[in-house]
Each structure stands twice: as structure tokens, then as C-alpha cells.
Simulated scan of single mutants.
Amino acid sequence: MKTLHHILLAAAMIAPGALVAGAATAQVGGVAVADPEAAVANSKAWATARTQIQTTYKAQIDQANARRQAISNELQPLVTAYQTAAAAPGATEASLRTQATAIQTREQAGNAELQRLTAPASRAQAYALEQISAKLPDAVNAAVRAKSVSLLLRPNAALFAQPTADITAAITAELDRTVPSVGITPPANWQPGQQGQQGAAAPAAAAPATNNRAPTGR
């Protein structure tokens, strides 16, 4: 989930130093790694919320999946025709522009349609994730204290780390303890970010309309 990463990254960075908070009180110096996004994604509250959302919004999600396939089927002959024209002798960007524009316009319209169809589910996902992510700094701090960690890094920031140095599971356990469940029905006036996260946006419940993007021409 690409957008999930951005939501959880924003949550983990609510306050500077959130991932190393508690270092000053660590009893024993130690370095550890943790993936805050994975900690939230692996939480029981998110697993339950995701299942509830898939059930509650099944009709909309099924409709979006059907439309995504239909849009892909509509685009495929256009893309094939474009590729054939692009391979023809003398093809230029100018001669291909009309076809490329038609493909891009249809794809954009398809994506907009899918976003409308999945908006309720996406909003519910964002609401659930925001509730869990609001507890992430506290969960990190608790895990850091329990493990006597003086420096906590993201896995991709460490050149090497033993598996035992990863405290992601400990953070998830703290989340499971402090936020065992969340609601999936946001208030009517709720907007992502109201609980303190900045830059949060609902993860798309539907993938882009198609992967058949037109080449840009010669």
C-alpha cells in the first residue's frame, strides 16, 4: 500500500525524535531498528478494521474492481494502436500526440471514477489508521524503555542489524495493548489529520485504472 506508507510515516514523525524518545532514560545503552509502518500494519486493530471495511463496503469495492477491469479493457486497444503507430516509419511526437492525449484523458477519467467509487472505503481506512497511528509515538516510547534502547533507527538506515535488534514486534504489541480496536465510521465533519498527523490521506482502496500507460512518443 503506497499511501499507507505515507500515512504511517507522517504518524511516526509527529514530533521530532519520536523514534528515539526515551533514549535519555534508557538503563543500558543499545541500538535497535524498527519499522513503524509495519508495526501499525501488523496491529490487530488494523487487521480487524480492514476486514470490517471490506465487508461494509463490499458492494462499492466490487463495483470498483469491475470498472477497473472494464476501463483496462477499453484502454488496451487504444494503447495497442498507439504502439503500432509509434513503431511505424516516420512516427513523430506530433503525429502521435492525438492518440496519446486520448489515452491519457480516458485513463484520468477512469482513475477519477474509481476514486469516487472507493471514496467511502478510503475514508474509513484513513480514519481507522489515524486512530491507530495516534498511539504510535507512545508505543514506540514504551518499547524503547522496555528494551533499554538508546538509539532507534529505521531498518533502511542501518547498514547491518541482527534480527534480535528489531523491536517492530514489540511496538506492535504495545499498539495491540493500548488500541485493541478502532471505529471505521468517521464523523460527518471528520478530515484526515485532525488527530495531529499532517499530510495524511486515505489509502486508495482501488489500484490505478490500468498499468497500460501510453509511451510519450519519439
Rank of each mutant, 00 (worst) to 15 (best):
K135H: 10
K135Q: 13
K135N: 00
K135L: 01
K135T: 00
L136S: 08
P137C: 11
P137M: 15
P137V: 13
P137F: 04
D138R: 13
D138M: 05
D138C: 02
A139C: 03
A139E: 08
A139K: 05
A139W: 12
A139S: 14
V140L: 10
V140Q: 09
V140G: 04
V140D: 05
N141P: 03
A142D: 14
A143S: 12
A143R: 10
V144M: 08
V144T: 15
R145I: 10
R145P: 05
R145F: 02
A146F: 03
A146V: 07
A146I: 11
A146S: 14
K147A: 12
K147S: 12
S148G: 12
S148C: 11
S148M: 08
S148K: 11
V149Y: 07
V149S: 14
V149H: 14
V149C: 11
S150M: 06
S150C: 01
L151P: 01
L152Q: 03
L152G: 12
L153G: 13
R154L: 14
R154K: 15
P155C: 02
P155L: 03
P155E: 03
P155N: 12
N156I: 07
N156P: 00
N156S: 12
N156G: 06
A157V: 10
A158F: 00
A158Q: 01
A158Y: 00
L159E: 05
L159K: 00
L159R: 00
L159A: 11
F160G: 01
F160A: 10
F160E: 10
A161I: 02
Q162N: 08
P163M: 07
T164N: 07
T164C: 02
T164S: 15
A165C: 07
D166W: 04
D166N: 13
D166E: 09
I167D: 03
I167T: 04
I167S: 09
I167Q: 03
T168V: 06
T168G: 11
T168R: 01
T168N: 07
T168Y: 04
T168H: 09
A169Q: 11
A169S: 05
A169T: 11
A169H: 07
A170Q: 15
A170V: 10
I171N: 09
I171K: 10
I171H: 14
I171M: 13
T172F: 01
T172W: 09
T172K: 07
A173I: 06
A173D: 15
A173G: 15
A173V: 07
E174P: 10
E174H: 08
E174A: 14
E174M: 12
E174V: 09
L175H: 00
L175D: 01
D176C: 06
D176Q: 04
D176S: 12
D176E: 12
D176R: 03
R177Y: 05
R177H: 04
R177Q: 11
T178W: 09
T178P: 05
V179N: 08
V179T: 15
P180G: 08
P180M: 09
P180A: 10
S181D: 13
S181P: 09
S181A: 15
S181K: 14
V182T: 03
V182A: 01
V182I: 11
V182R: 01
G183Q: 09
G183L: 05
G183W: 04
G183N: 06
G183E: 06
I184L: 04
I184P: 09
T185S: 13
T185N: 13
T185Y: 06
T185G: 02
